[in-house]
Design a protein around this nucleic acid. Structure first.
Length: 278
DNA sequence: AACAATGTTCAGTC
DNA sequence: GGACTGAACATTGT
């Protein structure tokens, strides 16, 4: 699931329900998700502190932490990347399910109250002193947790980049424009579904070489990206986009009725309308 | 059983 | 070195 809109919602959930609660214990024993930190390293760094703010650039999130005890010196930054399927689940005092957090829905709804969920799919957990917790739930296990994450290779956030910066960065090279949009060092936050949605809205073929787009097309692409991103955040995620339900064999373009085309572009399965997207 | 999956990274080629 | 492509990564769902 997680592209920029889902990560933004997770960040908001942390901001609303996960801050300023004392960290009593941390389970960082999944050495794959927490690599390269050895078990206990993240726990030792966080125990006794509090998360004090939640930030995001593209699909990368991080929390700043408080000093310990009377110390005014801030703690380390806790970086979280949701990977392909990670979600943040926050519980309140006494473990009440996810009030204010990201309630599990859709195919994972069953896992919400599954007693085995924690043991099997919670890859990283912070236990707060009040009895609640913040967990990284991730079936696919491609999520990442790390201290003081390196953000230097991320481009500007797709939601905050201004138009001239966007145009200058995207309109380069001979690679397909979709590949350019997916490159996190160019613009951070666009994933496979949001890219298809944006290109469909802008009526631009995903295969067009990025450097050959006209000024008009680039402006349209920028607008479409802003619109589809904002809509996805408000409506609950990229899966709420218009084009998403038209990914599938025999499906038709919701605007013109032409049968959708599928092919690999930029290394990902890509759907587009061959009639309108040129 | 084989393949795709909303993610990143790294090896290899030009 | 930069630009670009494709495979690998761990696991699940179809």
């Amino acid at each position: 699931m997680p592209e920029l809109p889902e990560v933004e919602r997770a960040r908001t959930a942390i901001e609303r329900a996960g801050l300023n609660r004392k960290i009593a214990e941390v389970d960082d024993t999944d050495t794959w998700v927490c690599r390269p930190h050895p078990p206990g390293e993240i726990a030792d760094a966080l125990r006794g502190r509090r998360l004090v703010s939640a930030h995001r650039q593209g699909k990368t999130m991080w929390c700043e932490t408080s000093g310990q005890g009377r110390s005014r010196t801030p703690g380390p930054t806790l970086g979280v990347h949701l990977g392909m399927s990670g979600r943040i689940v926050i519980t309140q005092r006494g473990g009440t399910p996810t009030e204010g957090g990201d309630r599990l829905t859709g195919p994972y709804a069953n896992a919400q109250d599954d007693p085995n969920r924690k043991a099997i799919w919670d890859r990283f957990t912070i236990a707060f002193g009040d009895g609640g917790s913040l967990a990284l739930f991730d079936k696919r296990r491609l999520a990442r947790v790390r201290l003081d994450p390196d953000l230097s290779r991320l481009g500007p956030d797709a939601q905050r980049v201004d138009r001239s910066d966007f145009v200058e960065r995207v309109a380069r090279g001979v690679a397909p424009v979709k590949a350019r949009l997916l490159d996190q060092s160019v613009i951070a936050g666009v994933g496979n579904l949001l890219a298809d949605e944006t290109l469909w809205q802008a009526k631009i073929s995903p295969r067009r070489p990025a450097g050959e787009l006209s000024r008009t097309e680039l402006n349209r692409l920028y607008r479409s990206l802003q619109n589809s991103t904002q809509a996805a955040i408000e409506h609950g995620g990229v899966h709420t986009g218009e084009i998403i339900e038209f990914r599938g064999v025999g499906r038709h373009c919701p605007r013109c009725g032409t049968e959708m085309t599928v092919a690999g572009v930029g290394g990902r399965t890509t759907w587009w309308c061959p009639q309108e997207q040129n």
